[in-house]
């Protein structure tokens, strides 16, 4: 029944990440055992999917849509603004551990482009000013 066992791996990874914010190294061996897989296979699955991370994220996760519809409405400038304001590249976390900046490739909010997602909260028609306000609010400023 190894295939059935392995089929629970993605839900298990989602649960772990929801709890810890990332997949801790010490969980790999347990995951491998529980799902009847080699540790290398588990690491391979984690590495394939953009959602899963192996290091702790910032307190907030800011995803900026970089796909076509948002590009048509100024997402490149918004992305540059976010990166400059936060002082980090995409994929990195601010030095104070507050915000992880990530690119998203479509949030399904294309009729209200440009779109961003702060944690699980979707925002549409986002201007640079609104983005600043959202981040300030998130930091409790």
């Amino acid at each position: 029944m190894s295939s059935t066992n392995q089929a629970d791996l993605l839900p298990a990874l989602h649960r772990l990440q929801e709890k810890f914010g990332y997949i801790p190294d010490h969980a790999i061996a347990e995951l491998a055992k529980a799902h009847n897989m080699a540790q290398a296979e588990v690491v391979g699955v984690i590495g394939f999917y953009h959602d899963f991370r192996r290091t702790p994220p910032g307190r907030q996760r800011l995803r900026i849509c970089r796909a076509e519809s948002c590009q048509a409405m100024g997402a490149d400038a918004l992305a540059l603004h976010a990166s400059t304001q936060l002082g980090v590249e995409f994929g990195a976390t601010t030095a104070d551990g507050e915000v992880t900046l990530e690119a998203a490739y479509c949030l399904g909010n294309c009729a209200c482009s440009p779109a961003v997602m702060l944690d699980d909260e979707l925002h549409g028609r986002v201007s640079a000013e609104r983005l600043d306000a959202m981040l300030a609010e998130g930091r409790g400023v």
Partner: peptide, 19 residues
């Protein structure tokens, strides 16, 4: 899913459900 665009391809999607 877990943030992989290619999983919209049907066989990739099936692999993904299989873990």
């Amino acid at each position: 899913g877990a943030g992989a665009y290619v999983c919209g391809e049907e066989t990739s999607l099936l692999e993904s459900i299989e873990g």
